[in-house]
Design a protein around this nucleic acid. Structure first.
Lengths: 224, 224, 224, 224
DNA sequence: AATGAATGAGACTTCATTCAT
DNA sequence: TATGAATGAAGTCTCATTCAT
């Protein structure tokens, strides 16, 4: 189910454990710099410093600045995926699982807002292969929502098309917390309330899935 | 009600009509280049060429590369605003106006997908003042949705908080068409159907606004 | 005796009166700008503006930016020469004339300090011909001091070499007021006193001219 | 007594010995170019070449073109100071020391005429901090002459004001050799004789210092 | 494996000068 | 004569990448 990322950043170094450790350092250092200055304005020297190594050293684990961006994407998505799995662990009821997934998605996007913002702003700088890799992960992520929706609506007559589309939207909607952060901060007092509100909206939206619109019963009630 | 943008890009040129014309050329040329290469990888020489003038000439209408990005943002938002106004003209029924607004929003974001993508990816390159200007326009835009929702729900008991939040979401949601374009293209045959589906989802979502959840009647039915 | 400057800046314009007026405008405008920013950092646009005309217009009276610097030198030296002549008018006693010359030299260099400073800093930017022209004027100026000294020492046995050298020095020394202005301001309260002091020093220095060092009598006493 | 220059040009390089070496290269290369073309017309590329390194390399030791000019000033004043100290070493008699100082000053200004000319023409291009630094050195230099004069005149009743002023003049006068080089070359056969003459003039001038003008005895006799 | 100095291509920007009106 | 927009050459500086130690 989890297809492994195809891309591998090649290096001159042999010691694979060291590679992993250095890559982690690089990812963390790079994120620090990227969220402040963005990819283009960050210099590799700054990144190396933030990563606790010298420029020359870093180039032993990376072939180009573009490689760094891939490592960062990989690092971030790995974190998000890991936390997502943890968040849903132990929740068995399908509807609850769906709700937990959206809720977690909201919270993590909110928590890692800077990183997510960075990802949305820098995708253009990924090379072809890395971009493909990332889009693949996104697809997996959406498909997870698809499964959750399908299980939640088991027994009802559903529009497959709408179900799939809803999955896309549920995966995407929480990102509002990042991309419209400024607007939301301006217009609302409490971000927690906002998160709850978005969750409500999202779940209400899913009601458009069942084919039988007249007799349908709401999946969720506001404030559930 | 429509506050004019504060920022003015100063120039050495006196003929104001000429300024407008050249700025339009610059905006259009820049967009051409930006959507392909992004802001940072685009050189001012390329931009000038695409704009049909020499570099030196362009710098008579612009003080820095950053000014160009502002001009582009201004150009794009102006287009979107103009078309939006045109789209809603003649639609009087509040609900229909709301629906038209969301629908138009979807369509225009879809049509100008490249430009919108560019805007989301490049906001970091706006200088402070320009960014403020743009966020102000965004706020106006969201407030318009707020008004539309308020009129549509006239007579019902509504949660002001939810209404405001829904406005934010309705303004934001259509951007999925741009930011997840790849995913949507992969997963669905017809983009038109997708647009309809998103509209449905969005309008269903608004049902979370009324306070009286039990007795509420759907504002919209799927497929309306 | 007064050889006319050889150099003529050619132009397209025929009306010679107009040329003179515009040239004066240019010189005065240019000086304004030059003393603040120096020759290189001053733009021709700024100069034209300070001169009360447009760039294009200015180029009717000037072939290049370098021409402007010549016009300025010409203007300044003309002022200095005119004032010098006025200052010495009516003074007949040779020693008094000499003293008046040095005194005036000091005062005018002090009064036009900015301009003189500019001249010393920008001579490198004069084209060959202009430089030659200016050096010629300088020579005339020194020769005037030579004559004054010769008349003042009439009857004494003098070293021609020293007399000539003293002329050079008397013409040069006052420039200390410009080139060391900062230092003098720092170290002394009253610039007037300083001017007097320099005059004294200069005149005392001239005592080295007579060949008969033993029997010589001071030309000047301090404080005369 | 010798306050160290405050200004430090920062750099990315860590090896301080290397920094010193490269800075010396840069200073020497830059002087070569500057004396021919002046600061503004010299390109950093030319300077780097004359310094025997690439442009990019040079920018590892310098943050801006303006830094270069400071390095050059520093280099030149350091040379002059060093040589001055050497020249006076072993001369104990106060009058002889004073004479040696003026004489040396003349000779070194004559020897390094191009550099000194450059310094006078380019001070405007120093940034605020560098200028302050340089003016401070100048002050130190003048104060040295003050001390020499005071020791030479020990026992006599002197005007403190005139003594201080004479120090300023003695430090400044030799520069005539640079600033009026053309004129002196035109008017005199031997520059050595000129140097002697200026020395004489300068020392004679100092006779205006003692308060008791009537009974004073010349400090120096011409030709001493 | 690590270091950090060297490199050079290329970017943005300025501005003297020209020229059509 | 006057205007001011257009031009493009040239200059400064940055920074990803390499390489000798």
């Amino acid at each position: 189910m989890t297809k492994q990322p195809a891309k591998k950043v090649e290096t001159r170094i042999k010691d694979t454990e060291l590679i992993d450790q250095r890559r982690r350092q690089i990812a963390e250092g790079a994120i620090e710099v990227f969220v402040v200055k963005g990819f283009h304005k960050a210099t590799v020297r700054e990144i190396a410093e933030a990563a606790g190594m010298t420029m020359g050293s870093m180039y032993n684990y990376v072939r180009s600045k573009e490689d760094i961006i891939y490592i960062v994407y990989d690092h971030i998505t790995r974190i998000l995926r890991t936390e997502m799995n943890a968040a849903m662990e132990g929740v068995d009821d399908p509807k609850e699982r769906l709700k937990a997934a959206v809720k977690y998605n909201l919270e993590s996007v909110n928590r890692y807002s800077d990183m997510v913002m960075f990802m949305y702003q820098s995708s253009r700088s990924l090379d072809r292969e890395s971009l493909h890799d990332m889009l693949g992960r996104e697809t997996e992520y959406i498909e997870m929502f698809e499964d959750l929706l399908r299980q939640s609506l088991a027994g009802q007559e559903v529009s497959e098309f709408r179900l799939r589309l809803a999955a896309d939207i549920l995966a995407y909607l929480p990102v509002i917390v990042t991309l419209r952060r400024w607007s939301l901060r301006q217009r609302f007092d409490s971000m927690d309330e906002v998160l709850d509100g978005i969750l409500d909206f999202a779940l209400h939206g899913t009601e458009f899935i069942p084919t039988d619109q007249e007799g349908r019963k709401p999946l969720f009630l506001a404030g559930d």
